[in-house]
Design a protein around this nucleic acid. Sequence first.
DNA 1: CTACTTCCTTGATTTTCGTTAGGTCCTTTT
DNA 2: AAAAGGACCTAACGAAAATCAAGGAAGTAG
Lengths: 239, 239
Amino acid sequence: MSTTIVSSEVEKLAEIPLLKRLSTEAREQLLRGATKKSVSRGEMIFFQDDEADAFFIVLEGWVKVFRATSSGDEAVVGVFTRGQTFAEGAAFTNSNYPASGEAVTDSVVLCIPVAHLANSIAADPNIALAMMSSLSMHLHQLVLQIEGLKTHTGAQRVAEFLLNLSTEPAGSCTLVLPYDKALIAGRLGMKPESLSRAFQKLKSYGVEVKQNRAIISNVQVLRTLVEQERTVVMHSSHG
Amino acid sequence: MSTTIVSSEVEKLAEIPLLKRLSTEAREQLLRGATKKSVSRGEMIFFQDDEADAFFIVLEGWVKVFRATSSGDEAVVGVFTRGQTFAEGAAFTNSNYPASGEAVTDSVVLCIPVAHLANSIAADPNIALAMMSSLSMHLHQLVLQIEGLKTHTGAQRVAEFLLNLSTEPAGSCTLVLPYDKALIAGRLGMKPESLSRAFQKLKSYGVEVKQNRAIISNVQVLRTLVEQERTVVMHSSHG
DNA sequence: CTACTTCCTTGATTTTCGTTAGGTCCTTTT
DNA sequence: AAAAGGACCTAACGAAAATCAAGGAAGTAG
Protein backbone atom coordinates (compact mmCIF):
# COMPACT_ATOMS: atom_id res chain seq x y z
CA MET A 1 0.00 0.00 0.00
CA SER A 2 1.45 3.36 -0.94
CA THR A 3 0.31 6.96 -0.84
CA THR A 4 1.75 10.26 -1.96
CA ILE A 5 3.04 12.85 0.48
CA VAL A 6 0.64 15.60 1.47
CA SER A 7 2.25 18.99 1.95
CA SER A 8 1.37 19.12 5.64
CA GLU A 9 3.74 16.21 6.14
CA VAL A 10 6.68 17.83 4.45
CA GLU A 11 7.72 19.86 7.45
CA LYS A 12 7.74 16.86 9.74
CA LEU A 13 10.04 15.08 7.30
CA ALA A 14 12.52 17.93 7.56
CA GLU A 15 13.99 16.11 10.57
CA ILE A 16 15.44 13.45 8.30
CA PRO A 17 19.20 13.94 7.82
CA LEU A 18 19.06 13.68 4.06
CA LEU A 19 16.37 16.37 3.85
CA LYS A 20 17.51 18.54 6.71
CA ARG A 21 20.02 20.65 4.90
CA LEU A 22 17.85 21.23 1.87
CA SER A 23 15.88 24.41 1.27
CA THR A 24 12.12 24.15 1.70
CA GLU A 25 11.69 24.34 -2.05
CA ALA A 26 14.18 21.58 -2.75
CA ARG A 27 12.59 19.40 -0.09
CA GLU A 28 9.16 19.88 -1.59
CA GLN A 29 10.50 19.21 -5.06
CA LEU A 30 12.09 15.94 -3.98
CA LEU A 31 9.07 14.78 -2.01
CA ARG A 32 6.68 15.56 -4.83
CA GLY A 33 7.64 12.31 -6.53
CA ALA A 34 7.89 10.26 -3.35
CA THR A 35 5.38 7.78 -2.02
CA LYS A 36 4.84 6.43 1.47
CA LYS A 37 4.68 2.70 1.72
CA SER A 38 3.51 0.58 4.63
CA VAL A 39 5.13 -2.81 4.86
CA SER A 40 4.47 -5.61 7.30
CA ARG A 41 7.10 -7.54 9.18
CA GLY A 42 8.76 -9.96 6.81
CA GLU A 43 7.59 -8.19 3.69
CA MET A 44 10.16 -7.55 0.97
CA ILE A 45 10.81 -3.97 -0.06
CA PHE A 46 13.10 -4.67 -3.00
CA PHE A 47 14.83 -7.72 -4.40
CA GLN A 48 18.49 -8.34 -5.11
CA ASP A 49 19.16 -8.25 -8.88
CA ASP A 50 15.96 -6.38 -9.61
CA GLU A 51 16.28 -3.18 -11.57
CA ALA A 52 17.13 -0.40 -9.13
CA ASP A 53 14.40 2.14 -9.82
CA ALA A 54 14.02 3.70 -6.38
CA PHE A 55 15.76 4.35 -3.10
CA PHE A 56 14.23 4.57 0.35
CA ILE A 57 14.06 6.38 3.66
CA VAL A 58 12.77 4.66 6.78
CA LEU A 59 9.99 6.61 8.50
CA GLU A 60 8.98 3.96 11.03
CA GLY A 61 10.24 0.55 12.00
CA TRP A 62 13.33 -1.44 11.10
CA VAL A 63 14.54 -2.66 7.75
CA LYS A 64 17.33 -5.09 6.93
CA VAL A 65 19.39 -5.14 3.77
CA PHE A 66 21.07 -8.43 2.98
CA ARG A 67 22.73 -10.42 0.25
CA ALA A 68 21.71 -13.96 -0.45
CA THR A 69 24.22 -16.31 -1.99
CA SER A 70 23.18 -18.82 -4.58
CA SER A 71 22.59 -21.44 -1.92
CA GLY A 72 20.55 -19.69 0.72
CA ASP A 73 23.34 -18.36 2.87
CA GLU A 74 22.67 -14.77 3.81
CA ALA A 75 24.88 -11.83 4.79
CA VAL A 76 23.32 -8.82 6.47
CA VAL A 77 24.79 -5.69 5.00
CA GLY A 78 22.89 -3.15 7.05
CA VAL A 79 19.95 -2.62 9.36
CA PHE A 80 18.22 0.72 9.19
CA THR A 81 15.68 2.64 11.19
CA ARG A 82 13.90 5.96 11.44
CA GLY A 83 15.48 8.71 9.37
CA GLN A 84 18.04 6.56 7.63
CA THR A 85 18.29 6.13 3.87
CA PHE A 86 19.05 2.83 2.21
CA ALA A 87 19.66 1.51 -1.30
CA GLU A 88 20.63 5.03 -2.34
CA GLY A 89 23.84 3.69 -3.85
CA ALA A 90 21.91 1.68 -6.40
CA ALA A 91 20.22 4.83 -7.61
CA PHE A 92 23.35 5.95 -9.41
CA THR A 93 24.57 2.75 -10.94
CA ASN A 94 21.81 2.53 -13.54
CA SER A 95 21.72 -1.14 -12.81
CA ASN A 96 20.32 -3.58 -10.29
CA TYR A 97 20.13 -3.78 -6.54
CA PRO A 98 23.16 -5.62 -5.18
CA ALA A 99 21.14 -6.78 -2.16
CA SER A 100 17.58 -7.29 -0.97
CA GLY A 101 15.59 -5.20 1.50
CA GLU A 102 13.06 -6.58 3.97
CA ALA A 103 11.02 -5.11 6.81
CA VAL A 104 11.93 -6.77 10.11
CA THR A 105 9.15 -4.99 11.96
CA ASP A 106 5.99 -3.42 10.62
CA SER A 107 7.41 -0.34 8.95
CA VAL A 108 6.73 2.74 6.89
CA VAL A 109 9.23 3.73 4.23
CA LEU A 110 9.46 6.66 1.90
CA CYS A 111 10.06 5.50 -1.66
CA ILE A 112 11.80 7.89 -4.05
CA PRO A 113 12.04 6.84 -7.71
CA VAL A 114 15.49 7.37 -9.21
CA ALA A 115 13.98 8.99 -12.27
CA HIS A 116 12.42 11.60 -10.04
CA LEU A 117 15.67 12.04 -8.15
CA ALA A 118 17.48 12.76 -11.39
CA ASN A 119 14.90 15.39 -12.28
CA SER A 120 15.15 16.93 -8.84
CA ILE A 121 18.92 17.16 -9.03
CA ALA A 122 18.64 18.87 -12.38
CA ALA A 123 16.23 21.33 -10.79
CA ASP A 124 18.40 21.93 -7.74
CA PRO A 125 22.01 20.71 -7.64
CA ASN A 126 22.07 21.09 -3.86
CA ILE A 127 20.10 17.88 -3.71
CA ALA A 128 23.14 16.17 -5.19
CA LEU A 129 25.30 17.41 -2.34
CA ALA A 130 22.87 16.06 0.22
CA MET A 131 22.85 12.70 -1.53
CA MET A 132 26.62 12.59 -1.63
CA SER A 133 26.77 13.29 2.05
CA SER A 134 24.37 10.44 2.65
CA LEU A 135 26.36 8.10 0.41
CA SER A 136 29.54 9.05 2.21
CA MET A 137 28.04 8.25 5.56
CA HIS A 138 27.10 4.82 4.35
CA LEU A 139 30.54 4.33 2.94
CA HIS A 140 32.03 5.25 6.27
CA GLN A 141 29.70 2.93 8.09
CA LEU A 142 30.63 0.02 5.87
CA VAL A 143 34.30 0.77 6.42
CA LEU A 144 33.73 0.54 10.14
CA GLN A 145 31.82 -2.69 9.70
CA ILE A 146 34.67 -4.24 7.77
CA GLU A 147 37.17 -3.11 10.35
CA GLY A 148 35.00 -4.62 13.05
CA LEU A 149 34.75 -7.95 11.29
CA LYS A 150 38.47 -8.14 10.70
CA THR A 151 39.89 -6.95 13.98
CA HIS A 152 37.26 -7.58 16.63
CA THR A 153 36.15 -10.81 18.25
CA GLY A 154 32.50 -11.73 18.42
CA ALA A 155 32.14 -10.46 21.96
CA GLN A 156 33.77 -7.17 21.05
CA ARG A 157 31.40 -6.66 18.14
CA VAL A 158 28.44 -7.32 20.39
CA ALA A 159 29.78 -4.84 22.92
CA GLU A 160 30.17 -2.29 20.16
CA PHE A 161 26.61 -2.92 19.05
CA LEU A 162 25.30 -2.37 22.57
CA LEU A 163 27.33 0.80 22.96
CA ASN A 164 25.87 2.16 19.75
CA LEU A 165 22.40 1.59 21.13
CA SER A 166 23.15 3.19 24.47
CA THR A 167 22.70 6.89 24.90
CA GLU A 168 24.49 7.26 28.22
CA PRO A 169 28.09 8.48 27.96
CA ALA A 170 29.05 6.76 31.21
CA GLY A 171 27.73 4.79 34.15
CA SER A 172 24.97 2.24 33.89
CA CYS A 173 22.19 2.01 31.37
CA THR A 174 19.31 -0.19 30.32
CA LEU A 175 18.38 -0.65 26.70
CA VAL A 176 15.96 -2.56 24.55
CA LEU A 177 17.27 -4.80 21.78
CA PRO A 178 15.53 -3.38 18.73
CA TYR A 179 15.04 -6.64 16.84
CA ASP A 180 15.40 -10.34 17.42
CA LYS A 181 18.66 -12.00 18.25
CA ALA A 182 18.97 -13.96 15.04
CA LEU A 183 19.08 -10.68 13.14
CA ILE A 184 21.49 -9.10 15.60
CA ALA A 185 23.73 -12.10 15.04
CA GLY A 186 23.48 -11.71 11.27
CA ARG A 187 24.14 -8.03 11.51
CA LEU A 188 27.31 -8.73 13.47
CA GLY A 189 28.49 -11.49 11.17
CA MET A 190 27.87 -14.45 13.46
CA LYS A 191 25.38 -17.21 14.19
CA PRO A 192 22.74 -16.94 16.91
CA GLU A 193 24.58 -19.51 18.99
CA SER A 194 27.74 -17.45 18.87
CA LEU A 195 25.79 -14.38 19.86
CA SER A 196 24.51 -16.31 22.83
CA ARG A 197 28.05 -17.20 23.85
CA ALA A 198 29.14 -13.61 23.36
CA PHE A 199 26.45 -12.44 25.78
CA GLN A 200 27.76 -15.00 28.24
CA LYS A 201 31.25 -13.57 27.99
CA LEU A 202 29.96 -10.05 28.44
CA LYS A 203 28.47 -11.01 31.81
CA SER A 204 31.92 -10.68 33.33
CA TYR A 205 32.02 -7.15 31.94
CA GLY A 206 28.80 -6.22 33.67
CA VAL A 207 26.27 -6.89 30.92
CA GLU A 208 23.04 -8.68 31.71
CA VAL A 209 20.64 -9.71 28.99
CA LYS A 210 17.12 -10.83 29.76
CA GLN A 211 14.67 -11.27 26.93
CA ASN A 212 15.05 -8.22 24.75
CA ARG A 213 16.42 -6.05 27.56
CA ALA A 214 20.10 -5.46 28.18
CA ILE A 215 21.48 -3.87 31.31
CA ILE A 216 24.97 -2.45 31.16
CA SER A 217 26.30 -1.78 34.64
CA ASN A 218 29.19 0.35 33.41
CA VAL A 219 29.38 1.71 29.91
CA GLN A 220 33.03 2.61 30.20
CA VAL A 221 34.11 -0.89 31.14
CA LEU A 222 32.49 -2.06 27.92
CA ARG A 223 34.18 0.67 25.96
CA THR A 224 37.62 -0.41 27.11
CA LEU A 225 36.81 -3.95 25.99
CA VAL A 226 35.99 -2.74 22.49
CA GLU A 227 39.19 -0.75 22.25
CA GLN A 228 41.36 -3.58 23.40
CA GLU A 229 43.48 -5.44 20.96
CA ARG A 230 42.12 -8.71 19.72
CA THR A 231 44.93 -10.74 21.20
CA VAL A 232 44.58 -9.13 24.61
CA VAL A 233 40.94 -10.07 24.70
CA MET A 234 41.63 -13.60 23.64
CA HIS A 235 44.20 -14.21 26.31
CA SER A 236 42.40 -12.43 29.08
CA SER A 237 41.07 -14.29 32.07
CA HIS A 238 37.56 -13.20 31.18
CA GLY A 239 37.12 -16.16 28.86
CA MET B 1 56.69 16.09 -4.63
CA SER B 2 53.66 17.45 -6.47
CA THR B 3 53.05 19.24 -9.74
CA THR B 4 50.02 20.72 -11.44
CA ILE B 5 48.44 19.11 -14.49
CA VAL B 6 49.49 20.47 -17.84
CA SER B 7 46.73 20.60 -20.41
CA SER B 8 48.44 18.09 -22.69
CA GLU B 9 47.90 15.50 -19.98
CA VAL B 10 44.19 16.12 -19.63
CA GLU B 11 43.22 13.98 -22.58
CA LYS B 12 45.18 10.99 -21.34
CA LEU B 13 43.37 11.24 -18.03
CA ALA B 14 40.05 10.95 -19.83
CA GLU B 15 40.45 7.18 -19.56
CA ILE B 16 39.79 7.33 -15.83
CA PRO B 17 36.25 6.17 -15.00
CA LEU B 18 35.46 9.17 -12.84
CA LEU B 19 36.47 11.58 -15.60
CA LYS B 20 35.29 9.58 -18.55
CA ARG B 21 31.70 10.68 -18.63
CA LEU B 22 32.48 14.35 -18.10
CA SER B 23 32.55 16.90 -20.86
CA THR B 24 35.98 18.19 -21.86
CA GLU B 25 35.23 21.47 -20.15
CA ALA B 26 34.15 19.87 -16.90
CA ARG B 27 37.23 17.64 -16.96
CA GLU B 28 39.52 20.60 -17.45
CA GLN B 29 37.74 22.54 -14.74
CA LEU B 30 38.15 19.72 -12.24
CA LEU B 31 41.78 19.07 -13.13
CA ARG B 32 42.67 22.73 -12.91
CA GLY B 33 42.85 22.45 -9.14
CA ALA B 34 44.43 18.99 -9.08
CA THR B 35 48.05 18.15 -8.44
CA LYS B 36 50.07 15.10 -9.34
CA LYS B 37 51.97 13.57 -6.47
CA SER B 38 54.74 10.99 -6.64
CA VAL B 39 54.96 8.79 -3.58
CA SER B 40 57.50 6.10 -2.78
CA ARG B 41 56.66 2.66 -1.53
CA GLY B 42 55.73 2.91 2.12
CA GLU B 43 55.03 6.61 2.04
CA MET B 44 51.82 7.84 3.63
CA ILE B 45 49.33 9.69 1.45
CA PHE B 46 46.90 10.73 4.18
CA PHE B 47 46.45 9.90 7.83
CA GLN B 48 43.43 8.55 9.64
CA ASP B 49 41.78 11.29 11.75
CA ASP B 50 43.44 14.07 9.80
CA GLU B 51 41.18 16.69 8.33
CA ALA B 52 39.86 15.38 5.01
CA ASP B 53 40.83 18.15 2.60
CA ALA B 54 41.38 16.13 -0.57
CA PHE B 55 40.50 12.95 -2.38
CA PHE B 56 42.65 10.95 -4.80
CA ILE B 57 42.89 9.05 -8.04
CA VAL B 58 45.64 6.49 -8.64
CA LEU B 59 47.59 7.13 -11.83
CA GLU B 60 50.35 4.58 -11.31
CA GLY B 61 51.09 1.93 -8.72
CA TRP B 62 49.13 0.50 -5.82
CA VAL B 63 47.75 2.19 -2.75
CA LYS B 64 46.29 0.64 0.37
CA VAL B 65 43.69 2.19 2.63
CA PHE B 66 43.55 0.81 6.13
CA ARG B 67 42.28 1.49 9.61
CA ALA B 68 44.53 1.18 12.60
CA THR B 69 43.01 0.44 15.96
CA SER B 70 44.36 2.11 19.07
CA SER B 71 46.58 -0.86 19.75
CA GLY B 72 48.37 -1.43 16.47
CA ASP B 73 46.00 -3.89 14.88
CA GLU B 74 45.30 -2.97 11.28
CA ALA B 75 42.41 -3.69 8.91
CA VAL B 76 42.84 -3.19 5.18
CA VAL B 77 39.72 -1.54 3.83
CA GLY B 78 40.73 -1.34 0.21
CA VAL B 79 43.62 -1.61 -2.23
CA PHE B 80 43.50 0.58 -5.28
CA THR B 81 45.33 0.84 -8.57
CA ARG B 82 45.37 2.72 -11.83
CA GLY B 83 42.22 4.67 -12.56
CA GLN B 84 40.55 4.08 -9.22
CA THR B 85 39.50 6.83 -6.84
CA PHE B 86 39.89 6.58 -3.11
CA ALA B 87 38.98 8.62 -0.04
CA GLU B 88 36.30 10.34 -2.09
CA GLY B 89 33.78 9.60 0.65
CA ALA B 90 35.65 11.81 3.05
CA ALA B 91 35.26 14.74 0.70
CA PHE B 92 31.60 15.18 1.64
CA THR B 93 31.64 14.65 5.35
CA ASN B 94 33.40 17.91 6.21
CA SER B 95 35.30 15.93 8.75
CA ASN B 96 38.28 13.62 9.05
CA TYR B 97 39.58 10.63 7.16
CA PRO B 98 38.22 7.44 8.71
CA ALA B 99 41.28 5.52 7.52
CA SER B 100 44.86 6.02 6.39
CA GLY B 101 46.30 5.77 2.88
CA GLU B 102 49.74 4.44 2.03
CA ALA B 103 51.58 3.65 -1.19
CA VAL B 104 52.48 -0.03 -1.35
CA THR B 105 54.53 0.41 -4.52
CA ASP B 106 56.12 3.55 -5.91
CA SER B 107 53.06 5.38 -7.14
CA VAL B 108 51.66 8.49 -8.72
CA VAL B 109 48.36 9.85 -7.45
CA LEU B 110 46.18 12.71 -8.53
CA CYS B 111 45.22 14.85 -5.57
CA ILE B 112 42.00 16.87 -5.78
CA PRO B 113 41.27 19.29 -2.93
CA VAL B 114 37.71 19.14 -1.68
CA ALA B 115 37.43 22.91 -1.76
CA HIS B 116 38.18 22.80 -5.46
CA LEU B 117 35.73 19.96 -5.97
CA ALA B 118 32.98 22.02 -4.36
CA ASN B 119 33.76 24.90 -6.69
CA SER B 120 33.78 22.60 -9.69
CA ILE B 121 30.41 21.13 -8.81
CA ALA B 122 28.97 24.60 -8.51
CA ALA B 123 30.37 25.35 -11.97
CA ASP B 124 29.08 22.10 -13.47
CA PRO B 125 26.59 19.88 -11.59
CA ASN B 126 27.42 16.96 -13.87
CA ILE B 127 30.56 16.53 -11.85
CA ALA B 128 28.35 15.69 -8.89
CA LEU B 129 26.71 12.89 -10.84
CA ALA B 130 30.09 11.42 -11.75
CA MET B 131 31.15 11.57 -8.12
CA MET B 132 27.97 9.86 -7.00
CA SER B 133 28.50 7.09 -9.46
CA SER B 134 32.00 6.63 -8.11
CA LEU B 135 30.77 6.63 -4.53
CA SER B 136 28.12 4.08 -5.41
CA MET B 137 30.67 1.77 -6.97
CA HIS B 138 32.71 1.87 -3.82
CA LEU B 139 29.65 1.23 -1.76
CA HIS B 140 28.84 -1.79 -3.88
CA GLN B 141 32.39 -3.05 -3.65
CA LEU B 142 32.35 -2.82 0.13
CA VAL B 143 29.05 -4.66 0.24
CA LEU B 144 30.63 -7.46 -1.75
CA GLN B 145 33.63 -7.47 0.55
CA ILE B 146 31.41 -7.85 3.60
CA GLU B 147 29.49 -10.66 1.98
CA GLY B 148 32.75 -12.37 1.14
CA LEU B 149 34.04 -12.12 4.67
CA LYS B 150 30.86 -13.50 6.13
CA THR B 151 30.03 -16.33 3.79
CA HIS B 152 33.29 -17.48 2.20
CA THR B 153 36.14 -19.48 3.63
CA GLY B 154 39.69 -18.24 3.38
CA ALA B 155 40.47 -20.41 0.37
CA GLN B 156 37.34 -19.18 -1.38
CA ARG B 157 38.27 -15.57 -0.81
CA VAL B 158 41.74 -16.18 -2.19
CA ALA B 159 40.24 -17.87 -5.24
CA GLU B 160 37.95 -14.89 -5.73
CA PHE B 161 40.93 -12.57 -5.49
CA LEU B 162 42.82 -14.51 -8.14
CA LEU B 163 39.81 -14.56 -10.42
CA ASN B 164 39.48 -10.80 -10.15
CA LEU B 165 43.08 -10.48 -11.28
CA SER B 166 42.69 -12.82 -14.20
CA THR B 167 41.51 -11.54 -17.52
CA GLU B 168 40.79 -14.89 -19.13
CA PRO B 169 37.13 -15.94 -19.12
CA ALA B 170 38.04 -19.62 -19.24
CA GLY B 171 40.91 -22.06 -19.55
CA SER B 172 44.31 -21.51 -18.03
CA CYS B 173 46.04 -18.30 -17.16
CA THR B 174 49.14 -16.94 -15.52
CA LEU B 175 49.08 -13.82 -13.44
CA VAL B 176 51.36 -11.72 -11.31
CA LEU B 177 50.47 -11.01 -7.70
CA PRO B 178 50.44 -7.22 -7.65
CA TYR B 179 51.74 -6.71 -4.12
CA ASP B 180 53.23 -8.72 -1.32
CA LYS B 181 51.46 -11.58 0.36
CA ALA B 182 51.15 -9.94 3.75
CA LEU B 183 49.00 -7.26 2.13
CA ILE B 184 46.98 -9.75 0.14
CA ALA B 185 46.27 -11.51 3.41
CA GLY B 186 45.21 -8.27 5.07
CA ARG B 187 43.06 -7.37 2.11
CA LEU B 188 41.26 -10.71 2.42
CA GLY B 189 40.86 -10.52 6.17
CA MET B 190 43.32 -13.21 7.18
CA LYS B 191 46.87 -13.68 8.47
CA PRO B 192 49.81 -14.40 6.13
CA GLU B 193 50.09 -17.92 7.51
CA SER B 194 46.49 -18.59 6.62
CA LEU B 195 47.01 -17.22 3.13
CA SER B 196 49.89 -19.59 2.69
CA ARG B 197 47.70 -22.50 3.70
CA ALA B 198 44.90 -21.31 1.46
CA PHE B 199 47.32 -21.44 -1.49
CA GLN B 200 48.13 -25.01 -0.46
CA LYS B 201 44.46 -25.95 -0.59
CA LEU B 202 44.05 -24.32 -3.97
CA LYS B 203 46.69 -26.66 -5.41
CA SER B 204 44.06 -29.38 -5.63
CA TYR B 205 42.00 -26.95 -7.71
CA GLY B 206 44.82 -26.41 -10.17
CA VAL B 207 46.47 -23.31 -8.77
CA GLU B 208 50.23 -23.10 -8.50
CA VAL B 209 51.94 -20.19 -6.80
CA LYS B 210 55.65 -19.56 -7.18
CA GLN B 211 57.10 -16.32 -5.91
CA ASN B 212 54.75 -13.61 -7.07
CA ARG B 213 53.43 -15.64 -10.02
CA ALA B 214 50.24 -17.66 -9.93
CA ILE B 215 49.27 -20.18 -12.56
CA ILE B 216 45.63 -21.17 -12.81
CA SER B 217 45.21 -24.29 -14.91
CA ASN B 218 41.46 -23.89 -15.24
CA VAL B 219 39.67 -20.68 -14.41
CA GLN B 220 36.26 -22.30 -14.38
CA VAL B 221 37.20 -24.90 -11.80
CA LEU B 222 38.16 -22.04 -9.52
CA ARG B 223 34.93 -20.26 -10.26
CA THR B 224 32.86 -23.21 -9.18
CA LEU B 225 34.80 -23.30 -5.91
CA VAL B 226 33.92 -19.68 -5.19
CA GLU B 227 30.26 -20.25 -5.90
CA GLN B 228 30.01 -23.26 -3.69
CA GLU B 229 28.29 -23.00 -0.39
CA ARG B 230 30.50 -22.66 2.64
CA THR B 231 29.27 -25.93 4.13
CA VAL B 232 29.92 -27.84 0.94
CA VAL B 233 33.50 -26.64 0.90
CA MET B 234 33.96 -27.58 4.50
CA HIS B 235 32.80 -31.13 4.07
CA SER B 236 34.48 -31.75 0.75
CA SER B 237 37.31 -34.21 0.35
CA HIS B 238 39.60 -31.48 -0.91
CA GLY B 239 40.76 -30.64 2.62
C1' DC C 1 81.27 -16.67 -0.35
C1' DT C 2 79.14 -15.43 3.87
C1' DA C 3 76.26 -12.79 6.87
C1' DC C 4 72.06 -10.48 7.12
C1' DT C 5 67.45 -9.02 6.28
C1' DT C 6 63.04 -9.66 4.56
C1' DC C 7 59.53 -12.39 3.10
C1' DC C 8 57.34 -16.56 3.06
C1' DT C 9 56.28 -21.29 4.53
C1' DT C 10 55.58 -25.13 7.79
C1' DG C 11 54.42 -27.43 12.06
C1' DA C 12 52.28 -27.74 16.60
C1' DT C 13 48.95 -25.85 19.56
C1' DT C 14 45.00 -23.16 20.91
C1' DT C 15 40.92 -20.50 20.22
C1' DT C 16 37.03 -19.33 17.89
C1' DC C 17 33.10 -20.43 15.66
C1' DG C 18 29.69 -23.22 12.81
C1' DT C 19 26.96 -27.23 13.18
C1' DT C 20 23.89 -30.25 15.25
C1' DA C 21 20.88 -31.70 18.63
C1' DG C 22 18.35 -31.33 22.67
C1' DG C 23 16.37 -28.59 26.08
C1' DT C 24 13.66 -24.57 28.48
C1' DC C 25 10.58 -20.89 28.57
C1' DC C 26 6.92 -18.29 26.73
C1' DT C 27 3.08 -17.40 23.79
C1' DT C 28 -0.67 -18.86 21.03
C1' DT C 29 -4.06 -22.11 19.85
C1' DT C 30 -7.44 -25.56 20.55
C1' DA D 1 -5.69 -26.89 30.76
C1' DA D 2 -3.13 -29.20 27.25
C1' DA D 3 -0.80 -28.99 22.93
C1' DA D 4 1.93 -26.70 19.51
C1' DG D 5 5.08 -23.51 17.88
C1' DG D 6 8.66 -20.13 18.22
C1' DA D 7 12.60 -17.90 20.26
C1' DC D 8 16.32 -18.66 22.84
C1' DC D 9 19.99 -21.14 25.48
C1' DT D 10 23.24 -24.99 26.27
C1' DA D 11 26.39 -28.65 25.25
C1' DA D 12 29.38 -31.47 22.39
C1' DC D 13 31.93 -32.03 18.25
C1' DG D 14 34.62 -30.69 14.37
C1' DA D 15 36.46 -27.41 11.02
C1' DA D 16 38.73 -23.02 10.21
C1' DA D 17 41.83 -19.99 11.33
C1' DA D 18 44.98 -17.40 14.80
C1' DT D 19 49.02 -17.85 17.46
C1' DC D 20 53.58 -19.18 18.60
C1' DA D 21 57.79 -20.87 17.09
C1' DA D 22 61.02 -22.36 13.86
C1' DG D 23 62.98 -23.01 9.45
C1' DG D 24 63.79 -21.99 4.48
C1' DA D 25 64.32 -19.12 0.21
C1' DA D 26 65.59 -15.01 -2.12
C1' DG D 27 67.89 -10.68 -2.39
C1' DT D 28 71.48 -7.48 -0.63
C1' DA D 29 75.69 -5.87 1.48
C1' DG D 30 80.00 -6.74 3.11
